[in-house]
Amino acid sequence: MTDHDQTHDWDVHALSGAYAVDALDDLERARFEAHLAQCAECREEVDSLREAATALGTADLVAPPAAVRDQVLAGIGRIRPLPPQSAGGTRATLRRRTPLLIAVAAAVVLLLGVGVASLQPWDGDDGPQELTAAERILNAADASTVEKSFPDGSSATIVISRSEGKALIRTTDMALAPDGKAYELWLQSPAGEMVPAGLMPDEADTTYVLDGDASEATGVGITVEPDGGSPQPTSDPIALFALDS
């Protein structure tokens, strides 16, 4: 029983219901979404539970004021709908991601120890695999997150583990940097210095582990820099994430 109790927190599948009603904190959500990408069973369950939640949520009808309609219809004139996700570029992204996700699954099983039978089997697993830096951060006991949403609907989340001394950034629907420019990441030192922490990959949805030691960092910044990056920020950050110490 003791073993079972210890594994309780790692029973990722059991989070499907809480995920379907947005009852996870940012870190749990990041972990569960990593799991979801490789667990068809959970994807199917989440989809069906969302239908149930929708039934709950559609009973209360309250028409918004007419002004909301006017603002929405005026607003869409200024927003370009996203292209379909199945376009060529995204497939490449998915292919690149697959090894990471398989490794995440392997890591989860290793951590579970027992309960392997309840997980989806997968092909090509030849025993233990090394955790990548991203997985070590996501799975660290002291991992914490800071999330920011931007006016264009994109969002970015920083996950940091002080014990690992590393931070990563996950972006969703980020607009790509303008031609000839790149997004550069910075770790802010306790003295307030901005230390270069790498260039963000040129992808709308990405997970990127920041270069450098994040164990003392007080913040993460993103600036737009000329291609190749700069040793110091040449512009004000487009986003600044304050990190709890």
């Binding site: 219901g17 809480a18 379907a20 149930a52």
Partner: peptide
């Protein structure tokens, strides 16, 4: 609580 939420949603579904 996460288990109650999941079990309840499954039954509701």
């Amino acid at each position: 609580a996460k288990t109650r939420i999941r079990d309840g949603l499954i039954r509701l579904r």
